[in-house]
């Protein structure tokens, strides 16, 4: 768990982060969004003290970060940046081993951990361990960057536009991978992005920043239904709103009893996917099955539309 309390950063007369407070629960993903220059990176970098706060404090698991020696604090917090900052003179294995080595882990333990992480990120250790970063594709470099940040099993992971340099296909795969791994390791994540789709896809909670101020910190649904300011509404995108809302809801929540003809839809799919399928096939309703394939009911366009409204 991480608590940010009245955090402020000033450079001379300009305040780039202005009295920001919020809290990220254990194992949750908080996404920070906002326009360029809003102070997102500065906020993130104050958490691992790469930037010294002008006022306010950060608590990690209840402990004030100022009470922990700077380097020791950073050993406990994973950090991924845009461009990844892989060490070009070190192999993939050596890059991933950086923090465990700084912590003085045993050689054998480090080797085992590197292999485990390479497996986790679907990079064949035999093929990739001894490669240099310049021999990897952008997507592979990104995975090595995240693997390196997770090497010493940090409870907290900070990510500054980690997918910014990837093409759309690779990016959405990398997002899914991150979600899967995060769910498995229960790591708390604070992630900065420009991309609203990414924010809605990944965030348990979303923090909207503008000119150093935190405008709203809420769940994705709340952000859509009750934007705190005009700026938030604009950032979320008025045309996209209903579809975003639908993609937050699972088919299971809009299930109707009964039968329908056609290709069945999974219970765990989002309403957005279901609507897309219905429109594409030109049907009013489709059958729904659970993961095992057993029929669970049906889903209809009318029912879906009811879930995409501002006022239910």
């Amino acid at each position: 768990m991480i608590e940010i309390e009245r955090l402020t950063k000033r450079y001379g007369a300009t305040t780039v982060v202005d009295d920001v407070s919020f809290r990220v629960e254990e194992g949750a993903i908080a996404v920070v969004v906002g326009t360029s220059g809003a102070g997102k990176s500065t906020l993130l970098r104050m958490i691992n003290r790469l930037v010294a706060p002008s006022a306010g404090r950060v608590l990690v698991d209840g402990e004030d970060t100022m009470a922990i020696p700077e380097d020791a604090l950073r050993h406990r917090i994973g950090y991924v940046i845009q461009g990844y900052g892989l060490f070009p003179h070190r192999t993939v294995a050596e890059n991933i081993a950086t923090v465990p080595r700084l912590l003085g882990w045993e050689k054998r333990r480090i080797a085992a951990r590197v292999e485990e992480l390479l497996d986790l990120f679907q990079l064949d250790p035999g093929e990739f361990a001894q490669k240099f970063p310049h021999q990897l594709s952008g997507g592979q470099q990104q995975r090595v960057g995240v693997a390196r940040a997770l090497a010493a099993k940090p409870a907290l992971l900070l990510m500054d536009e980690p997918f910014g340099a990837l093409d759309p296909v690779i990016r959405s795969r990398a997002q899914d991978d991150l979600l899967a791994i995060q769910r498995r390791l229960r790591t708390t994540v604070v992630l900065v992005t420009h991309d609203m789709n990414e924010a809605f896809h990944l965030g348990d909670r979303i923090a909207v920043m503008d000119r150093g101020r935190l405008l709203q910190y809420a769940s994705p649904g709340e952000l859509l239904l009750r934007p705190a300011e005009a700026f938030v509404e604009q950032l979320v995108g008025t045309a996209e709103r209903p579809f975003r809302l639908l993609s937050l809801t699972k088919v299971g929540e809009a299930l109707e009893p009964g039968h329908a003809e056609g290709e069945p839809i999974l219970l765990s799919a989002t309403l957005r996917d279901a609507l897309s399928q219905l429109v594409w096939l030109g049907r009013e309703a489709l059958p729904v099955v659970d993961a095992a394939g057993a029929p669970a009911g049906r889903i209809s366009i009318a029912q879906i539309l009811r879930h995409g409204r501002a006022l239910p």
């Binding site: 950073r74 940046i81 892989l86 070009p88």
Partner: peptide
């Protein structure tokens, strides 16, 4: 690279 090195402690 230097930023990442600093960030890793």
């Amino acid at each position: 690279v230097t930023d990442a090195a600093r960030g890793m402690g």
